[in-house]
């Protein structure tokens, strides 16, 4: 089946969704957003593609298997607990690095951001794994 409207809409919407999901992830610490929301948005983009063009097409553009997304997400999350352990002796203790940029601005990078990225990846992976599996089972398209 070919959903013309979906296919045309998808071309624009997927890009926007992915872009915003990443934006949401990074601004999450100070403004509404974060890994969980970002992950849901990113997965939404690929679900949209799967609905419009089929699971295989969506899988191809994702390039990485959802199960691997989950694994790498969990890995990043665990990884982010270690710097605190080695620096302060406490698991999960947030550790921050301040990188001075031009014009007096500073970029603050910390383990919570790494952790949030882990959340982002694993949430995306979980949702996509669930939906792809179900869609394949029911032979969508």
């Amino acid at each position: 089946m070919n959903y013309t409207i979906l296919v045309i809409a998808f071309r624009y919407i997927r890009f926007i969704l992915v872009f915003f999901s990443i934006l949401t992830l990074f601004r999450g610490h100070n403004l509404p957003g974060g890994g969980f929301i970002g992950g849901l948005m990113a997965s939404g983009a690929f679900i949209f593609q799967a609905l419009a063009l089929g699971v295989q097409s969506s899988k191809n553009s994702l390039r990485i298997k959802p199960s691997k997304l989950i694994a790498s997400g969990l890995f990043l999350a665990i990884l982010s607990t270690l710097p605190g352990f080695f620096a302060k002796g406490v698991f999960f203790a947030g550790t921050w690095v301040k990188i001075p940029l031009l014009f007096g601005a500073t970029l603050k990078l910390g383990t919570p951001l790494l952790f949030d990225t882990g959340v982002y990846l694993s949430v995306t992976g979980v949702v996509l794994l669930l939906i792809f599996t179900l869609m394949e089972e029911w032979k969508w398209n």
Binding site: G28, G33, G34, I78, V119
Partner: peptide
């Protein structure tokens, strides 16, 4: 403590990060 203005997010990824890890 958490270098973040979004309290909800700081709770999720810093204060209560262990819970979040459990959830994911």
């Amino acid at each position: 403590g958490g270098f973040g203005e979004n309290v909800v997010n700081v709770i999720l990824v810093d204060f209560r990060a262990l819970d979040t890890l459990g959830e994911i």
